[in-house]
């Protein structure tokens, strides 16, 4: 993979709105954002109700993913362009799921809604209808998804990249600071994890930093190129952003997203937890 295969610019997107075979899908943390205005022709995906199972704590399974994309009018041959608010957190989470279920051509709009809005580009409230399709997903590619036991086994063995903010990593707060802090799990981080906040990989306008800047960032933060990697955050969406950086932009081979993330790990009985600020690399 390289940047050209993964990202499209706002200029490219603007020129390709309405192009046959290109489907724009908006995925926001704030699931009402789309309704206030969206890219012309874009379809909304609600991450809370459409990308997760409604009963079990899990992402949608293959059959549910097929039903979702069929209902949204996505063909297997379509180029899917995902975008969203909050620096593409949930668009990246959807991107990871599209890769997990083997969609051939999926891209992220670099900068997402934020850059689009800051650029003053057009948003519309038009209702978008796409005729239903019959979408066929692949079996999930578990080479990009980590589960709890392999996370515990990875302590001291693989790169564990905690992409939350330093205060969440140290245990000072339990959730991103725009969310209430009342949570049931224990604060802290997985021992031997390095703290490389997702935000360091993005510019202020929400676009990804350059490949050179990204390579430098991870190198300086103690990321070991020779090891396999598991990225985690609180619920797996910010770590999807970092998964995109490490696996898709920088092209590292064995990188998994642990979507159970801290809400699962911090609730497990008996697993080791570390508190406090990150160790300084080289100190």
């Amino acid at each position: 993979m390289s940047r050209q295969d993964v990202l499209v610019s706002a200029d490219w997107a603007e020129k390709n709105l309405g192009t046959e075979g290109i489907v724009f899908l908006e995925v926001d943390e704030d699931t009402t954002a789309y309704d206030g205005g969206h890219l012309a022709g874009a379809v909304k995906i609600n991450w809370t109700t459409e990308l997760q199972d409604a009963v079990r704590r899990d992402i949608v399974d293959k059959a549910q993913f097929e039903q979702l994309l069929s209902a949204k009018g996505v063909n297997n041959s379509d180029t899917v362009v995902l975008y969203g608010g909050n620096n593409n957190w949930f668009a990246a989470y959807a991107y990871w799921q599209f890769k997990l279920y083997g969609h051939a051509d999926v891209k992220l709009l670099d900068g997402g809604r934020k850059k689009w809005e800051l650029d003053g580009r057009t948003l519309t409230t038009d209702v978008v209808e796409r005729p239903a399709t019959t979408y066929t997903a692949q079996e999930p590619d578990l080479s990009i998804r980590a589960f709890r036991d392999e996370v515990v086994d990875a302590i001291g063995a693989k790169n564990l990249v905690d992409v939350r903010s330093p205060d969440e990593f140290s245990g000072k707060i339990l959730a991103p600071a725009h969310l209430p802090q009342e949570q049931s799990q224990r604060p802290g981080h997985i021992p031997t994890a390095v703290n490389i906040p997702w935000s360091k990989a993005a510019n202020e306008d929400g676009t990804f930093k350059s490949d050179d800047e990204l390579a430098k960032l991870y190198g300086e933060a103690g990321y070991d190129d020779s090891k396999s990697t598991i990225a985690y955050c609180r619920i797996g969406e910010r770590s999807s952003h970092t998964w995109v950086v490490l696996h898709e932009l920088l092209g590292h081979d064995d990188v998994k997203n642990y979507d159970g993330s801290w809400t699962e790990y911090g609730s497990l009985i008996g697993v080791p937890i570390e508190l406090g600020a990150p160790q300084k690399v080289g100190a």
């Binding site: 608010g85 620096n87 903010s165 330093p166 205060d167 991103p176 600071a177 725009h178 935000s199 360091k200």
Partner: peptide
């Protein structure tokens, strides 16, 4: 929201 060291903590609209 940036913390005491200037590090990004959260963002809202």
């Amino acid at each position: 929201l940036l913390d005491g060291t200037g590090e990004f903590t959260a963002e809202v609209v």
